[in-house]
Amino acid sequence: MDRNLKIRKIRELLDAELLCGEDQLDREVYSACSSDMMSDVLAFVKDQAVLLTGLVNPQVMRTAEMMDMHCVVFVRGKNPTPEMVELAQSSGIVVMHSALRMYEACGTLYSAGLNGTKVAAE
């Protein structure tokens, strides 16, 4: 079953701590992707609005911005720097971090109906 989820719900499901983007929590997203390789995100991602990653550097935020993503989730309890959070903020991207590992975090969102490929229905 494919569903769209509010970013608020993603935060809840992943028991994640919000780092910025409080005002965007009611935004609905339709699909997600996960990678530690920004090269692959740039090459293979289409319209996924959520990026789950264990990589921590400013290029994560810039890559998300280039791909018009709405939300970045750092898994395995990884903590972005204040500089990275600022970058995300200036691009209107929600940032959170979860203690879950990548596999569990992805599985949780997938089970909740968040597809890997579906694009937003207009």
Binding site: M37, M38, S39, D40, L42, L55, Q59, V60
Partner: peptide
């Protein structure tokens, strides 16, 4: 690669 690049896709 540890910075998230170097897949030869750019």
């Amino acid at each position: 690669r540890s910075l998230g690049f170097g897949a030869g896709m750019g």
